[in-house]
Amino acid sequence: MKLVLKLLASFVVALVLGVGSALLLLRGGAGLGGAIAVGPWTTSAETGSADADPYTRARIAIGGLLALSRSETIYFTAATDDAGAPLRTRCAYRIIGTDPPARWWSITAYGADHFLIPNPQDRYSFGGNTLAREDDGSFVIFVGPAAADGNWIPTGEKDGTFTLTLRLYNPNEDAARDPSRIELPRIAGEACPS
């Protein structure tokens, strides 16, 4: 009887430690993780690929199921602004940049649950074909809870962390070969009510 109890206790402890550490590792990291970083944006060269290591595959399954491999699409994710502060839905940000080297691109905001953030405007993203541009061809996208003129991605009414995904469809050859050298938009933190 005592042995059965001991075995059971050992199994429960092992279960909590083993499964818990796995889930913590997969969910704990910022964004989807990934070895390649450009400012606050990160990506993994192995997304969707059969070369993906088990941890990358598991992380993608949780936060990016059915993602394409990088010759077709590069997915960059940012969980912080340029200064390294976690992105929060109650704060305001400006994404400033020029068109990245791809046939088509878009920037989309996702809640901490990896789904689109509910907002009365039903607006979740801007793409290279849908946003308003500055005179010099560059763009500014406002992300935050308060309405802004121009390209505005609302972050709804609930407070929480969020992430941004930049998709590069059919990236140029150089970009696909070495995503770390792509020039990506800046994410400037603006007002953040405490």
Partner: peptide, 20 residues
Amino acid sequence: TIVLAAVLHILTIFALPYGI
């Protein structure tokens, strides 16, 4: 217990993509 925890950790990492 530590060995069992390691085995369960690896199993979780491998099984998650299939489950999802």
